[in-house]
Write a protein that binds this DNA or RNA. Structure first.
Lengths: 218, 218, 218, 218
DNA sequence: TATGAATGAGAATTCATTCAT
DNA sequence: AATGAATGAATTCTCATTCAT
């Protein structure tokens, strides 16, 4: 005897699903995949163990859901937003993108590290991850190509540069935790983003006129 | 009455240990930590299950051993070797370091991804990882500082730059696997190393044809 | 949505616990602690192996539960019951206590022997046993002291006498099994109890025919 | 190439056996049967694990050997010695026997408790134990019967009295450990033996002329 | 004889999943 | 839909025993 419209019911169901998925995200982040138990996820979501199986096929399915939950908190928009909002210098746009990415990765660091590993072990999950990575890379790629076309970026191989930038972003944050003196404990996200942007644009070589790269700048 | 000298015995023991540690490395890399069973490790090492426990305290200990096995294949020396062997341009040294690191990470990619995750879950293991990361970072730091002092490198914040380089190196390789069109499937390690070095030295901004960036191209 | 009231559920849970504890008691009695397997206990209780762990923390916990199960079948009340029900001669009261104790010990002989040993090995379990032993000794002590005060018992050191009686009771039954011609195979519990009471009251020295010791014989 | 005579060799072998059996006794006493490992016994005996199997068929055999080791330290002689050395009063003889038994049981308390339990579980071992128990009981029995014949002991059923005395002896010591205020911590072996002998001879009834047993004594 | 490395059977315990209520 | 008790497969680890040296 349904008292709710089909739509209201579907909304409730979706909400319940998300509630459990969020719980899974938290538990996976804290304990890893193998150590996380369905029971602990159910408890954190405030439902019974059996209930989890009404919304998900099993533990594995919970990982997919947790991943989608994280990705739903906007990876993609960041690039476009940055382009739109800060049409200023190349450097500003770059710094903004860095900042957004850093924030996302920082919030879910442990989970990303789990994902990176888990994708090795579970081919289906790997495909799921790759979809998102591709989307992100394509965005950055477009941006770089545009810069090259406009003449505002050097003619480096975009294939490589794009990946280098991605690696820089993810790597800086994901590995920071293992750093004896973690960067993000000592510098603000803003500051790191600015400095990395400088580095990414001008490289390591000194900019004095005597430097080997001197005069090469417009 | 031992027929073997104490030394010969110790050598055999060490060899056995390494044999099992290598098997653990392989199984962990292929299956992850939770899914790897001591039995499968024993089988791959060609010993009985119980034998594993003669050489290691338990499954967890096998992870530590696998990690040491990987690190024993020289992370650290690579920097010094590069400096010594190629005293030429800054760019050449850098490219050489990149290349060595890439090779190590590529060989044990899945295991590094496991390590990165596992260190989140197991605090003791995290400490074990941090020791090695610190060693590596200190080496690179020395190199960068030297460059700055000599005036051959720009005055960027070394704290940040060092981490950016580390992230670049690890990130490029570790995440390549999740790339829809993996870089290292299409370019040689050598080529990627060269292009990344160019990027790292000169940045993304365009240079005049006379700049040294151009000289790096055939 | 539980179909059963919370109380009904709790009753079922208690019943299940007791069912498994009884099975544990039987298996421990038959095989000892080390040789008893959780699987065999589960089988005897008619449940799956995992179910045991829903009610008990582990094998060790089963031993504690079995011990409480045995002690729940009233050690302590026997003394009071005897005093209340048979207010007649000292000898009759004593015989009644002996009889009750004998019956309890006989029913769970093997388990008591296990307990006596197990308490050596497991300090926590020893404490658990001591609680019950103390309770029993205090009861008997009260009885003896009362007798001395009334002048109906000789002025022996009660500390020693109490323990002698305890030893007599437990010892007679527990060690009977190792007797080549077990006492309790040949005499009724009643008969042994009567004869031991006579011995305990009048000692081994001979008495004149007029002595009360004679009156106890048909 | 035997350098020793067959006899000398046999002596060495016997010594080795005893050395290992003593080690077994110690380890069994400390840890129980299930928890004792052959390795720990070998270590304590100062030999290799494999060596144990040259002298004993297996772990079970070590228990038999430990038991024989204990019994070899004279249970039996005590009664005869007592009779021979102290031909005085009945009470003195009894006290002497008690004393000897107490001492033996106290020295190997934990082991006797293990034996008492172990005999339940292992039928062969039970038979081994019964042989010794029988020997002891027959000795005491002879003593009691003699007393009765001589008219120095009351005409109690000797079957029962013998067992009561045995239970008293073993029980007092074996269970003392579980006593909240252990007797043997507070009284000397001598004192307990004396008081128990008094009890055993005269019983619990008061000896004043007004007492029910009064005048009953020769 | 003596050794101790190797074996592998067996035990306790955990936990994803099912299903009667 | 929701529950959570029950299941039993699978895993880690121990240890008595064997056997090549």
């Amino acid at each position: 005897m349904p008292r709710l419209t089909a739509e209201a019911r579907r909304a409730l169901t979706r909400e319940r699903r998300e509630q459990i998925a969020r719980a899974a995200l938290e538990v996976f982040s804290a304990r890893g995949y193998g150590e996380a138990t369905v029971r602990s996820i159910a408890r954190r979501a405030g439902v019974a163990e059996g209930t989890v199986y009404l919304y998900f096929r099993g533990k594995r399915d919970l990982l997919f859901a947790a991943w989608e939950t994280v990705m739903a908190s906007a990876v993609l928009p960041s690039v476009r937003r940055a382009e739109a909002a800060e049409p200023g210098s190349e450097q500003d746009v770059l710094a903004a993108v860095f900042r957004d990415q850093f924030q996302l990765l920082l919030r879910h660091g442990a989970f990303f590290r789990l994902v990176v590993h888990r994708a090795d072990v579970d081919p289906d999950f790997r495909r799921s991850v790759q979809v998102r990575v591709r989307e992100f890379l394509e965005e950055v790629m477009r941006m770089v190509q545009q810069g090259v076309r406009r003449g505002t970026l050097a003619e480096l191989d975009p294939e490589v540069v794009v990946r280098a930038l991605g690696a820089l972003i993810r790597g800086l944050v994901l590995f920071d935790r293992y750093d004896p003196k973690p960067l993000f404990d000592r510098y603000s996200v803003e500051a790191v983003a600015r400095e990395v942007a400088r580095f990414v644009l001008y490289g390591l070589l000194p900019r004095t006129p005597a430097g080997p790269a001197a005069g090469g700048q417009p």
